[in-house]
């Protein structure tokens, strides 16, 4: 801008020295007015007049990581959660399978006070630990029916790191263990207001629904303000196993009576499959036993006096029935 003004002044040959100096000063003032730093100062002044400035005060951080041996599906799910939650932190896969108490220390090192830990067993079963870090409580779930965000049928999309609304089923207020879970989920999944990595708009909803004694998680995009939604993903179903008083330790507060471990489930299926064959064989044997060889009791001597006329005899009968 300065240079332009100089050029302009050079074109006006008739302009006096004083006038040129005045012009330069004016242009400098203009530049100052448009300066970004100057602008922010102005804004700050305005804000100070309006009231206290909103700040990022809720320093909630969630550590999301998995144990070794997690399947690709579990890993994708974990990564999806990491992209959706700007207040999440990642860590390398946990090697130890026996001592989960170490997770508390890992979280402390990473400055996290919440934790989502995916525990993989047998390369096929995925468990999720949700914990409030130093003092608990913590809950262990079996994760079922996973669909990750990469799937093609989920058409929605949202800003990376926008703050989600959390929608809970009314059943969460009905029993105390669900109440604890609700508070835990709120603290873990809600993105802090004015988090530096978050976006200023709310364009997605997480839903937690209780159906069939399980918690169904869905993530929708808010397409229009009138309530039309499109699913973004991921999808998962959490089957509660236990709630512990501490984080990854402590006495059990709740145990799900409806929970059937995947191992039990598999054995049951196998047993039923084996029973199918056994039943079929038994049925066949029973049928063979019950089947009667003689359908009607006949007297073998009845046929002794049964004769026919020699004229009616055919073939071999002619040998027995003939006239002398």
């Amino acid at each position: 801008m300065f240079r332009r003004s100089v050029v302009k002044s050079s074109t006006h040959v008739k302009m006096g020295k004083r006038k040129i100096a005045q012009k330069i000063v004016e242009s400098k003032k203009k530049r100052k007015r448009n300066d970004p730093i100057h602008k922010t100062q102005q804004n700050a002044e305005k804000a100070a007049k309006a009231g206290p400035v909103a700040r990022w005060t809720n320093k909630e951080r969630t550590l999301i990581f998995a144990s070794r041996g997690v399947s690709y599906r579990g890993r994708h799910l974990m990564n999806d959660l990491r992209t959706l939650m700007p207040h999440s932190r990642a860590d390398s896969k946990m090697d130890r399978k026996d001592n989960f108490f170490l997770i508390n220390e890992v979280c402390e090192m990473r400055n996290c006070n919440k934790c989502l830990f995916f525990e993989a067993r047998k390369k096929m079963d995925l468990y999720l630990w949700a914990a409030n870090i130093p003092h608990g409580p913590s809950a262990k779930f079996l994760v079922e029916n996973i669909h990750t965000m990469a799937e093609m049928k989920l058409t929605g999309n949202c800003l990376k790191g926008s703050r989600p609304l959390l929608s809970f089923d009314p059943q969460f207020d009905e029993s105390p263990h669900f109440g604890v879970l609700k508070e835990l989920f709120i603290q873990i999944f809600s993105t802090p207001y004015l988090h530096p990595k978050s976006q200023p708009f709310n364009d997605n909803v997480y839903t937690f629904t209780i159906l069939d004694n399980r918690i169904w998680f869905r993530n929708y995009q808010i397409v229009e303000e009138d309530g039309s939604l499109a699913e973004i993903g991921p999808r998962l179903v959490l089957n509660l196993i236990k709630i512990f008083s501490g984080s990854f330790r402590g006495p059990t507060l709740y145990e799900n009576p409806n929970y059937v471990s995947p191992n039990q489930h598999r054995t049951l299926i196998k047993k039923q499959a084996s029973l199918k064959y056994q039943n079929r064989v038994e049925a066949r044997m029973g049928q063979m036993e019950r089947k009667e060889t003689d359908t009607y009791k006949m007297d073998t001597l009845d046929e002794v006096f049964h004769t026919i006329k020699p004229e009616d005899a055919k073939g071999a009968e002619k040998m027995t029935f003939f006239r002398k």
Binding site: R163, L166, V180, I186, Q187, N202, S245
Partner: peptide, 28 residues
Amino acid sequence: YINDEQGLKDRLTDFKKDLAWLERLDVT
């Protein structure tokens, strides 16, 4: 099956945070 209702309620009051709705954004 363990269901320590009182313990659960106590735990809930212990770790519940009194945050503004704007921080939580939860709807039931």
